[in-house]
Design a protein around this nucleic acid. Structure first.
Lengths: 100, 100
DNA sequence: CACTGGTATAGCATCGTTGCTATGGCCTGG
DNA sequence: CCAGGCCATAGCAACGATGCTATACCAGTG
């Protein structure tokens, strides 16, 4: 079937509710995508969750939780993961129209 | 004077301590820069802290705290601010060498 | 079958951010 | 001088992420 996937765009149009409603959802999605990104970087290095945990000063359970998108990570944690994975973390605001 | 600004690069070279030490500092610097960015966007719109607070579902005190870099913001808060300021929030990992 | 390594999940304590209220300083205008 | 808007800061409660330990599930392997 064609319309199988969730209609994200429709949900995003629910602007104008109370402040914090849609944005909280965005944060959850961001958490999910960051989790996937870290998992990719980790597996590319052939590391286990335990190894990444030790390298970033976390525990294996915290890594698993984060990669699963179970929680919205904090910036300090993202920094530590970035350092451990030898990448740099970028956080920025950009105009809506401009791609970057 | 030329060497007026703080020598950040020297501090950044303090890698190799325990995990979480330098990264916590990075997070604080990130918080400071994000605060400045939001303040710029806000003032460019001619908004007061109270107006931005209401638009983003925060309080004036929280906005002030954040703009001053007093705390490391969470992703949900950054999302709300971005939405209120009509910009998009970008969080990503990038290779250290590649600029972006 | 037992054993090992990797991952997911749970429960709890701790820490930090945020929400909220209130206050003080600063500046401008009346 | 007083009033009002703007910003900074403080104190406290509540919420959420993290640290930590322990456990369960699964896939290989001997």
């Amino acid at each position: 079937m064609v319309g199988d996937r969730t209609d994200w765009s429709a949900m995003r149009d629910r602007r104008m509710a109370e402040p914090g409603a849609v944005e909280a959802y965005d944060a959850a999605r961001l958490a999910f995508e960051l989790g996937r990104a870290v998992r990719e970087l980790r597996e590319r290095r052939g590391w286990s969750q335990s190894q990444l945990a030790q390298a970033s000063g976390m525990t294996q359970s915290a890594v698993a939780r984060f990669e699963a998108g179970g929680t919205v990570p904090t910036l300090p944690v993202l920094e530590r993961l970035a350092t451990a994975l030898d990448v740099s973390l970028h956080v920025s605001f950009a105009p809506r129209d401009a791609a970057a």
